[in-house]
Lab assay of single mutants.
Amino acid sequence: QVNIAPGSLDKALNQYAAHSGFTLSVDASLTRGKQSNGLHGDYDVESGLQQLLDGSGLQVKPLGNNSWTLEP
């Protein structure tokens, strides 16, 4: 069960990665100043990332080996 409060997208993504045990490689300029609506409930990694990114204009991309990145 994930419980991440709304706020900074950077912070939300870092909390989610730490909670879910995956690696997220992101260029900080992509997420700077963006906000997230947070995340509450049970999600697989990709669904949770998509939910956190909702409205940010960013997309999640798998890199393999439980690693992910973001792209515009």
Score class of each variant (00 low, 15 high):
Leu63Gln: 07
Asn66Arg: 04
Pro6Val: 05
Gln51Lys: 14
Gly64Leu: 04
Leu24Asn: 02
Glu71Arg: 06
Leu39Pro: 00
Gly7Asn: 08
Lys11Ser: 14
Leu58Asp: 00
Val26Cys: 10
Gln15Phe: 09
Thr69Ser: 12
Leu9Arg: 03
Ile4Phe: 02
Lys61His: 07
Ala17Met: 11
Leu58Glu: 00
Leu63Asn: 11
Gly64Phe: 04
Trp68Met: 04
Gly33Tyr: 07
Lys61Tyr: 07
Gln50Trp: 12
Ser47Met: 10
Trp68Gly: 02
Ala28Asp: 11
Lys34Cys: 10
Asp42Ile: 14
Gly33Thr: 03
Glu71Leu: 12
Gly55Glu: 04
Arg32Trp: 14
Asp10Thr: 09
Ser67Thr: 14
Gly48Pro: 01
Ser20Phe: 15
Gly7Pro: 01
Ala17Gln: 08
His19Val: 14
Leu9Ile: 03
Lys34Gln: 07
Leu49Ala: 00
Ser67Met: 14
Ser56Thr: 15
Ile4Gln: 00
Pro72Glu: 10
Asn37Tyr: 09
Val45Cys: 07
Leu52Asn: 00
Asn14Arg: 15
Gly7Trp: 00
His19Pro: 00
Ser56Cys: 08
Ile4Gly: 03
Arg32Gln: 15
Ile4Glu: 01
Gly41Ile: 05
Leu53Ser: 03
Val26His: 12
Val26Glu: 04
Asn3Asp: 10
Leu58Asn: 01
Pro72His: 09
Ile4Arg: 00
Trp68His: 03
Asn66Asp: 08
Gln35His: 13
Leu58Gly: 03
Phe22Gly: 02
Pro72Cys: 12
Gly41Ala: 01
Gly48Thr: 03
Glu46Gly: 08
Glu46Val: 13
Asn37Leu: 12
Tyr16Trp: 14
Ser20Leu: 15
Ser20Glu: 11
Leu49Lys: 02
Ala17Asn: 02
Ala5Asn: 08
Gly55Leu: 05
Leu24Cys: 08
Asn14His: 14
Val45Gln: 06
Gln15Cys: 11
Asn65Glu: 10
Gln15Ile: 10
Ser36Val: 04
Gln1Trp: 15
Trp68Tyr: 14
Glu46Ser: 08
Pro6Gln: 07
Trp68Pro: 02
Leu53Ile: 13
Lys11Asn: 13
Gln35Arg: 12
Val2Cys: 11
Thr23Tyr: 11
Ile4Thr: 01
Gly7Ala: 07
Ala17Val: 08
Gly64Arg: 04
